[in-house]
Amino acid sequence: MSTDITLSTRLRALAGYRATWPLLALAAIFIVDGFISPGFYDIRIVEGRLFGSVIDIFYRAMPTAIVALGMAVVIGTKGIDLSVGSVVAICGAVIAWRIHEGDSHFVILFLALGTGLLCGLWNGFLVAVLNIQPIIATLILMVSGRGIGLLVNQFYGGTDPSFESALLQGLSVGHIWLIPTRLIVGVGVFIALWFLIRRTALGLFIEAVGGNTSAANLAGVNARLIIFSAYLIAGLCAGIAGVILTADTHTSDPVSVALYIELDAILAVVIGGGSLAGGRIYLGMTVIGALIIQALTTSILISGLPPEYNLVVKAVVVLFVLLLQSQNARNAVWGLFSWRKS
């Protein structure tokens, strides 16, 4: 009897721990996948590159994960960046345009990243200088960004916006040794951000600003600058994702590229335990969140369910994770559980 109590208290404590549920969710998806697809854990080497379902999940999750990392930083300041999908579209259009103009691809890479930074600068200006609420401020670029992308495509006469670039495609779909390049890019972004956030005081400042802006200001933190930097980071991350996604399809398609990526990125942050109320940044858990989202999509594909089930399953799982994170819902479930037992 007493062991039963300690077990349930321990379970309760574990249930309250932030990382428990997302990791359990990811593990559960992987285990289920192992059952429905016998070859799920197989990793082969094809054309000098690692292949396999698990690798594929990491591979496809990278753009969302990179965008989500930037989003996590912005959400840490109590902000949100709805414009990341549009930023990807604009970056893609800029890449295609400059390639048609014959610029050096190396320069174009930096132009694309610079475009991301510029978009971040715009959002940062609206939020930090004009003091417009983030959700509203970034809505502006979200609404108009894809239009801007279409406009950039017109710069070279509206002809075929597809292109070839060994450098950019190498970054997106290539591999170094056995490892897909974009995984290396993703890990690089993660490590760079981790150092920026956790090995400088920027993380503390962002969390202070997100937790209580006026208190942070009075404590000597330049909140405006901190918020600005967060949007720059998000813009840059969206730019990197823009390079990967555009090079992947060899074309600039502002209308449909990275559709709903902002929502996936926000979901990744939230599934990873971040709160939209700001004040905390969890980089590692954000990547886990992005992996959960992609693992779900992949599971549906390999399970043979029609792809149209994807969104529904995603919604249900998201709801499930959210309900698990809610104290009220947990109590209700526990209550039901103990009521059944007695």
Binding site: L263, I266, L267, V270, L311, V312, K314, A315, V318
Partner: peptide, 20 residues
């Protein structure tokens, strides 16, 4: 009841209805 931000909840609603 679950104290979830409306943004996230209705986002799940968006996915659910579009998928349906």
């Amino acid at each position: 009841f679950c104290d979830i931000q409306p943004f996230i909840m209705t986002l799940a609603g968006l996915f659910l209805l579009r998928g349906s």
